[in-house]
Simulated scan of single mutants.
Amino acid sequence: MALSTEIDDFPYQFPEGLRVFVIDHDTTQLNAIADMCFQCNYEVTTCPFASFALHLLRETKGLCFDVIIIESQMPDMDSYEFLQHVTQEIKIPVIMMSCVDDDTTSARMKAIEKGASDYWLKPLNVNHINNMWQHVATIQQHDQIQRILEVKTGQKLMKRDEQSARKETNVCVLETKNNRVSWQLPELQQQFLIAVNQLGIDKATPKKIAKLMDVPGLTTSHVASHLQKFRLRYY
C-alpha cells in the first residue's frame, strides 16, 4: 500500500497551496494529475485505495485537505459509497472523475445526488486543475454566509427581546406614573402569589408583600388594592 505526499516550499496564499487529495487505482493517472497540481502551485497527496483514503480522512477529520478528486470505479471500495461518507461526515468538496466509457447520465446524476461538487471526464487537463479552487471557495462562502445569517438572526432575536422588554418596562413606568400597575403581567402576578403563599393569606399585609416582591415603582397602595381584590375573589 503506497501513500505519497509531496509539498512544494511556498507560502499558503489561496488558491496557491490548495491541498488536493487524489484517489485513483491507476498510478499513471495519479502521477499525471499530481504533475498538473504542482504546475498550479497546489499541494497534492495521492492514494491508490479508496478504503485507506476514507480511513485517513476520518483519522484527520479532513483537516489536511481542501478538495478531493476520486475515480468513479475504484476496485477496493464503491466510489459512490466513499462519496456519501465524505459528504456526510466531512465538509470537503469531492470531484468525481471517470473514463468516457463509464460516463452516463445516470452516473453523473448519481454522483451529484451523493454530494459530488463536479463530474469530470478523463483525461483531465490543466484547466480542470487550475479552476478546481472555485469548488473550495463555494463551500467556504456557503459556510461564511451561514455563519453571517446565524449571527444576524441572533442579533435580531436579541434586538426583539430588548424591544419587548423595553416596551414592558415603559408600560409599567407609564402606568405607575398614573398611579396604576398592570397586574396582567405574568411575572408581576407570579411574584405576588409567591409572596402571599410565603406569608400566608391571613398574615399577608400590603407592606410585607411589597417588601418581598421588591419591584421598583411598586408601592404599598398598589399592593393593597390588588390584595383586596384578590381576597374578595378567592377567599
Rank of each mutant, 00 (worst) to 15 (best):
P123L: 06
L227A: 04
V181A: 14
V173F: 07
W120G: 02
D9H: 10
G17V: 03
L218W: 04
I139S: 09
V67S: 00
N41Q: 09
Q73W: 03
Q29L: 01
N41A: 11
L199E: 04
L18R: 09
P206E: 09
A32I: 03
Q134P: 00
Y42I: 01
E43V: 02
L212E: 12
L56W: 06
P48W: 08
K229Q: 01
Q140C: 07
E71G: 09
L193N: 14
K167T: 10
S182K: 04
I95Q: 10
A137R: 05
C172F: 15
R166F: 10
D101I: 05
L124K: 00
M74Y: 00
E175W: 14
A195L: 11
E16Y: 14
Q13K: 08
F49Y: 13
P216H: 05
G200D: 06
P206S: 09
M158L: 15
L18P: 05
T104D: 03
V151L: 15
T219Q: 02
V126L: 08
F14P: 07
Q184P: 01
V171A: 12
I209W: 14
I68H: 11
W133R: 13
A32C: 02
S98R: 05
L188E: 02
E150H: 12
M74Q: 00
P93Y: 07
L232M: 14
P11C: 04
E175R: 14
L188Y: 06
T104K: 01
E43N: 11
K159Q: 15
N170D: 14
R180F: 14
E6D: 02
K167C: 04
W120N: 03
K152L: 14
I95Y: 05
C172G: 06
N170K: 15
R58P: 02
H25S: 12
S106C: 00
L83C: 11
K114Y: 03
I69N: 03
L56E: 07
F52T: 15
S182Y: 00
Q73F: 07
A210W: 07
S117R: 09
V171W: 03
Q190F: 14
K207D: 08
G17F: 02
F10S: 07
E175Y: 15
S182E: 04
T153K: 11
D118E: 03
V22E: 12
E175S: 08
S51K: 13
D8H: 06
V67I: 15
L121N: 05
T60C: 13
R160W: 14
G115V: 06
V22L: 05
